[in-house]
Design a protein around this nucleic acid. Structure first.
Lengths: 217, 217
DNA sequence: AGTCAAAACAAACGTTTGTTTTATTATTAA
DNA sequence: TTAATAATAAAACAAACGTTTGTTTTGACT
């Protein structure tokens, strides 16, 4: 808890004096714990997953778990943080943000986002379900990151409206709806199994764009 | 648990021989318990709400709670069931389903659904978060009801496509996306507080329809 | 060989959980 | 009134929880 609160990003705390070799091992174990625990949270839910379950899954002794993480809540916080960092990394990379034409830029960012949320649908669903467990302080940080993500799209849409490439009555509302739609597959995959990944991505992209671009498709 | 599993709808079990007066009181208390418990689930989450919390909130003694409900899980199941019954009741009533023109019918059902999910946003959000807790058997029933709701829209869309009033490439996909979008406010209200109820409903309706009706708005 | 801190371990801590039971009081019906 | 029924409060229950403890093993450096 303390660890994450003071140092949100990735628990680069390394307070203890450790040589680089040891730090690397320490880090690797922590990553492994978060990864295995996340799988359990996905399968059984956070509350229904005990520290003993995590100990079994990681092969690390129960008491010894607490050398690598400071508590159960921390594991969830780190998982949230890892995901949001990953999304922002992927979306911002590749010079996508340097595209000038609004329509091309929107399509590029949207497609990239759709692909990520498709591939990480299980993690995303878990996070949707377990938001309530996050400490208030950390929740605020997550919501802030989320609204930055919305603003990213809001800016693109606003620019597109100015250049008459898009037609929406409220860019902020449209951006919110768009971001919501991006998580479509994660929350509704149980009823969408019949589509292949590419089929889904194409249809989702088309459907989402139709609300923004006039006579799209 | 047993109670709900054998008799899904509304636990009209009344196994015990009770006169009508007693049955009514029994029913009234049960409804009260589920309502108060749901408020707690919304505020604190299912796992973080104890039976002692529910006893305090209802004013019913802890031990005596078990005369009205057969367990904690049952309360959640009944809450899920009540909501789905309510939605179907509202959507089907008012002869909306008798409307022949696809566009008018779609608009009517959509508007009705948007209003319900707006007004019951807290319950809907809670149900999204606590789905994992449901017993498998009951979850199946809920998912079935949900896909019937999707099919309702799928049929309308299919009819509209045939009459060339609508234009979508895959009615099933479109219906799924539409139903998903209906729960927009419940899952994103934290970033949509700036809109009034009517503002939101109008914009949501417009945005959703644009993906289905050509040159809508 | 000796030192020391990190890692591993089993065991236990103190709570809290959902649920049941018991003994006592209030309410109701005949 | 009397006998059955319901409601209450309190305690008890076993199980599970997250976390801490004291001790032992390991492994690298003096």
């Amino acid at each position: 808890m303390t660890d994450i609160d003071q140092n949100i990003p990735d628990s680069e705390s390394s307070d203890k004096r450790l040589n680089p070799r040891q730090q690397q091992i320490f880090k690797k174990r922590q990553v492994m714990i978060v990864k295995k625990a996340s799988r359990l949270f996905i399968k059984k839910g956070y509350s229904q997953t005990s520290m003993r379950d995590i100990a079994n899954a990681t092969g690390i002794n129960l008491g010894n778990l607490y050398h690598y993480i400071s508590g159960k809540e921390d594991i969830l916080c780190i998982a949230f943080n890892n995901y949001h960092n990953l999304v922002m990394e992927f979306v911002i990379k590749n010079d996508i943000l340097n595209i000038q034409e609004p329509e091309a830029k929107l399509k590029a960012v949207l497609r990239q986002s759709l692909e990520i949320t498709y591939d990480f649908r299980n993690d995303l669903l878990m996070m949707h379900r377990e938001t309530r467990v996050l400490p208030r302080k950390f929740l605020k940080i997550i919501l802030k990151k989320e609204s930055e993500f919305v603003r990213l799209f809001e800016d693109i849409i606003t620019r597109g409206v100015e250049s008459k490439a898009f037609k929406v009555s409220d860019p902020f509302f449209a951006a919110n709806m768009l971001v919501f739609q991006i998580s479509f597959y994660a929350l509704r995959s149980w009823n969408l199994k019949q589509f292949t990944r590419e089929e889904f991505l194409d249809m989702a992209e088309e459907t989402i764009l139709r609300a923004i671009i006039p006579d799209a498709m």
